[in-house]
Simulated assay, not measured.
Amino acid sequence: MTKLLLSVHVLVAILTVGSITVAASMFPRHALRALAGERPEGRPEGIGTAVLLHRICCGYALAGVAVPVFGIATGAQLGVLTDAWLIVSLVLTTLAAALLGLAVLPGQRRLLALAEDAAGEEEARPVAARLTMLTGVFNVLWAVVVVLMIVRPGSTTSA
C-alpha cells in the first residue's frame, strides 16, 4: 500500500505542481504581450493564451490539494509524520499554497483585468514584475520541498 500511495503522491505532484510552475511562470510575459498587441475586436491580441494559462493554474491548484493528502498518507504508512524534514516540507507546502491562492492567482486576475480594460502597459508592468517575483518564490518553495523529499535529512534511509 505504501508504494501505491507514494506513486500517486509523486505522480500528482509532478502533474499538478509542474503544470502550475510552468503556466504561472509563462503568464506575466503573455499578459504583457497581450497588452502591447493590437485590439482588432476590442479584445487584446493574444489574451487567450494568458487566460488559458490562468485557467491551468486555477484548475491544477484545486487538483494539487491531493499532493499533501497523499503525502501525509504515505508519511503515516512509513511512520515518519514526526520527522523534521516532513514537518518542514508540510510547512513549506502550506506557504506555497497560500502564496498561490492569496497572491499569484489574484495577481493573474488583476493583470488579466488590466489587459481586458485596455490599461496602459506602464500600469501593468509593475503588476507583472511583482507577479513574476511571487511566482519565482512559489517555484523556489517547491524546489526546496522536492530536495527535502529526496534527501530526507536525518532519515535512516537518507542518501
Rank of each mutant, 00 (worst) to 15 (best):
A66P: 04
A63G: 03
G48W: 14
Y60G: 01
H9Q: 03
A23Q: 09
L111Y: 06
L32N: 01
G46A: 01
N139Y: 09
L111T: 02
V22P: 04
H9S: 09
G37W: 05
R43W: 00
A97R: 05
G75R: 12
R43G: 07
H9Y: 01
R55D: 15
L4N: 14
T132P: 06
E116D: 12
V145R: 05
L95G: 11
P28R: 00
V22Q: 08
L111C: 07
H54N: 10
V12H: 01
A103P: 05
A119F: 01
R109H: 12
M1V: 05
R29L: 02
P40T: 08
L100H: 15
T21A: 07
A113G: 03
R33K: 13
K3I: 10
S19E: 00
A63P: 01
M133T: 15
G75F: 06
L99K: 13
G37R: 10
L112N: 05
V127R: 03
L81E: 13
G120A: 09
L35R: 02
C58S: 12
T93D: 00
T157H: 09
A129L: 07
L4S: 10
R39S: 11
L99C: 00
R43H: 03
E116N: 06
L148H: 12
G59H: 12
A143V: 14
M149C: 06
R55A: 14
V144D: 05
A50W: 05
M133G: 12
A98R: 14
H54E: 14
G37K: 04
L4Q: 14
T16V: 13
A115K: 02
V17C: 12
R55H: 15
L90T: 04
G79W: 01
V12I: 13
I20R: 03
T94F: 13
L4M: 13
A159M: 08
V147I: 09
A73R: 14
E121Y: 12
G75N: 10
T2V: 06
G136V: 14
I87W: 07
L5I: 00
T157I: 11
A73W: 10
R152F: 06
A115G: 10
E122N: 07
Y60N: 11
L86A: 06
V127W: 01
G64L: 07
L99Y: 01
V104I: 15
V140H: 06
L99T: 11
L52K: 10
N139K: 07
V10I: 07
V91L: 13
L90S: 01
A103D: 07
L92Y: 08
T135C: 15
W85M: 15
A96Q: 04
V137R: 00
C58T: 14
T135I: 15
L134A: 15
A97I: 08
G71C: 14
